Simulated assay, not measured.
Amino acid sequence: MNYISKNNIKVNGPIHLPTKKKIYTILRSPHVHKKSREQFKLYTNNILLVVYNVNNVKYNFLKKIYIPSCVKLEITKIC
């Protein structure tokens, strides 16, 4: 946070977006027991973080931040 406060960068968030849920149903036994099923759930959580007042030179600070491999980062420039 020190880098953000020194360079007059404004941050809005984190904003929690709705969680998406997918349910997969699989048969436990492929032959006789058709009523025996197992369900698996996959939850996807989205969090939005909006960063303001960032010049092209200052985009490099995003590359220095540790981001886990499971996190997707999108950078969009709004004029």
Rank of each mutant, 00 (worst) to 15 (best):
M1C: 05
M1D: 06
N2T: 14
Y3I: 14
I4E: 01
S5H: 07
S5Q: 12
S5A: 10
S5P: 00
N7G: 03
N7I: 05
N8C: 04
I9A: 02
K10A: 13
K10Q: 11
K10W: 06
N12F: 11
N12S: 14
G13E: 04
G13T: 04
P14I: 08
P14H: 09
I15F: 08
I15R: 09
H16G: 01
H16I: 10
L17Y: 09
L17S: 06
L17M: 14
P18M: 06
T19N: 08
T19H: 03
T19Y: 03
T19Q: 09
K22R: 12
K22P: 01
Y24H: 13
T25C: 05
T25I: 15
I26L: 11
I26Y: 13
R28A: 03
S29V: 05
P30W: 08
P30H: 07
H31Q: 06
V32G: 00
V32Y: 08
H33I: 07
K34Y: 13
K34S: 07
S36L: 09
S36C: 05
R37E: 03
R37T: 08
E38G: 05
Q39R: 13
Q39T: 11
Q39A: 04
Q39P: 00
K41Y: 11
K41E: 14
K41V: 14
Y43G: 00
Y43K: 10
T44V: 12
T44P: 00
N45A: 07
N45R: 10
N46C: 03
I47P: 01
I47E: 13
L48S: 11
L49V: 15
L49C: 15
L49H: 05
V51S: 00
Y52F: 15
Y52R: 07
Y52K: 13
Y52A: 04
Y52M: 06
V54Y: 02
V54M: 04
N55P: 00
N55C: 10
N56S: 15
N56A: 14
N56K: 15
V57A: 14
V57L: 13
V57M: 07
K58W: 01
K58E: 15
K58C: 00
K58R: 08
K58I: 02
Y59G: 01
N60M: 06
N60P: 00
N60F: 06
F61G: 00
L62W: 03
L62K: 02
K63G: 01
K64L: 12
K64N: 15
I65P: 00
I65M: 11
Y66R: 08
Y66V: 03
I67K: 10
I67Y: 09
I67A: 06
P68S: 14
P68T: 04
C70E: 12
V71R: 02
V71A: 05
K72H: 04
L73C: 05
L73H: 05
E74N: 15
I75A: 08
I75H: 06
I75V: 14
T76V: 14
T76S: 10
T76R: 08
T76Y: 05
T76E: 12
I78M: 07
